[in-house]
Design a binder for these strands. Structure first.
Length: 114
RNA sequence: CGAGUAAGCCAGACAGCCGCGUGUGCAUGCCGAAAGGCCGUACACGAGGAAAGUCCGGGCUCCAUAGGGCAAGGAUAACGGGUAACGCCCGCCGAAGGCGACUUUAGGACGAGUGCAACAGAAAUAUACCGCUGACGGUUUGCGCCGUCAGUAAGGGUGGAAAGGUGGGGUAAGAGCCCACCGGGCGGCUGGGAACAGUCCGCUCCUGUAAACUCUAUCCGGAGCAACACCGUGGGAGGACACAUAGGUUGGCCCGACCGUCCUCAGGAGGUGGCUUGAGCUUUGCGGCAACGCAAGGCCUAGACAGAUGGCUGUCCAAUACAGAACCCGGCUUACAGACUUGCUCGUGCA
RNA sequence: GCGCCCGUAGCUCAGCAGGAUAGAGCAUUCGCCUCCUAAGCGAAGGGUCGGACGUUCGAAUCGUCUCGGGCGUG
């Protein structure tokens, strides 16, 4: 991912949860917060409740892939955290993609579509 | 052909586009005093049979320990072998199941001691309720009946279990009291490397329970890669030096603000190593029933640190299960869609 | 990684050095009481003791394996 690094430290996640805006569907929750200028950052949270290691890996990889494919459309300079909910373990890739795009529009993370 | 049984093996394949981790090479664009880091690009490699549960056994590291033993605590339990070791594996014996191939098996000791055995039953490890028998006494013409004392585990019913079982002799009635056969135990003899087996001989100890305490034999020091080693801002402890209207830092100077200096020790956050070449995999030959061992040749096969395998499309296929390395090995256990191979057994038919 | 605990009625818990009817409180249903309700009183229903296998004459209790849940600690 060219302009996006990842959020790693727990306090950074906490800052986004507390001080950021959020939106949710049944599958995922998206938090966002204005961060460094020109650099976007992505954090993924897939808790133990979602499933076993294989299931969590699959959900995380799908979310990462969704973000990667739509990175070009996103506004820069935001810290974004995507939290997977329990239902996401049975969702298809297409469902996850649809929900993410809807939430991104709602939070104003995407550039205005031409 | 059908039914079964045992063992082994695979764990979707191929192609295209986008994307990820590690290593090597190239390029030198950016940062840096340098070491090096970031970015780009090419190539190679990139999860499992259980990576899982964490139930055992080790390696490795640190701590403790002169060396050894005892106690405590824990584990294991027929015998022989394999192994680095094991509670694992192989072979074999006994027991149980199956027509059979074969499967299952915590399988030492209750003849060292202690405990427990509810309810039922007269009585539960010792016993006389009913019954049977004898003696004495009473009663009766007599048979018999009643009482006291003694003998008796053959019969009754209870129970998981009632002094090993069956038959005969014997006796007042009975009893391993005696005999024959049988079960189990102990000692001897024969066979076997051993467990063990035996139409052999002797003894006569014979309820069950040790996944009850216990006894016997063997084994075990503790903790874990977040171990441990190195670097290590700030702060801490100790020592030496300096003793204060001093000195240092900030600053051109004053005011103001802050502060002892050096050395040693332990070391939070963070970083680097540990980190993958190993009781390794594989081919052939030899030894062994086998587990396995030996020799020669070949191969290098993830190493992350918020943690790499995903998305889309097409073809084949009946369909894709259980599931993600985290210091490393040997096992065990558990989960699992299916595909394939081989040996053997039983039944049926044909020649 | 290491260590520990708990699964029993719809809920909260007893019973766990084996003994055969598995109890208690709350809740549920029915009856009494009351003009009605609550409270009170009386009764009833509801459990394969998380699962499987074993030891034993007999297992909620003992052993092994397993499933689920929770906690401590570096």
């Amino acid at each position: 991912m060219k302009v996006t690094s990842s959020i790693k430290q727990n306090y950074e996640f906490r800052r986004v949860y507390n001080a950021g805006k959020s939106a949710a569907t049944g599958l995922i929750v998206v938090y966002c917060r204005r961060g460094l200028r020109g650099r976007s950052r992505l954090g993924l949270t897939v808790g133990t409740k979602v499933g076993k290691a294989v299931v969590r890996n699959k959900v995380r990889r799908r979310l990462k892939e969704i973000y990667r494919l739509h990175e070009a459309e996103m506004r820069r300079g935001f810290d974004v955290v995507i939290v997977a909910r329990v239902k996401s373990q049975v969702a298809t890739y297409q469902q996850l993609e649809k929900d993410f795009l809807r939430l991104a529009d709602k939070l104003g993370l995407r550039e205005d579509q031409p």
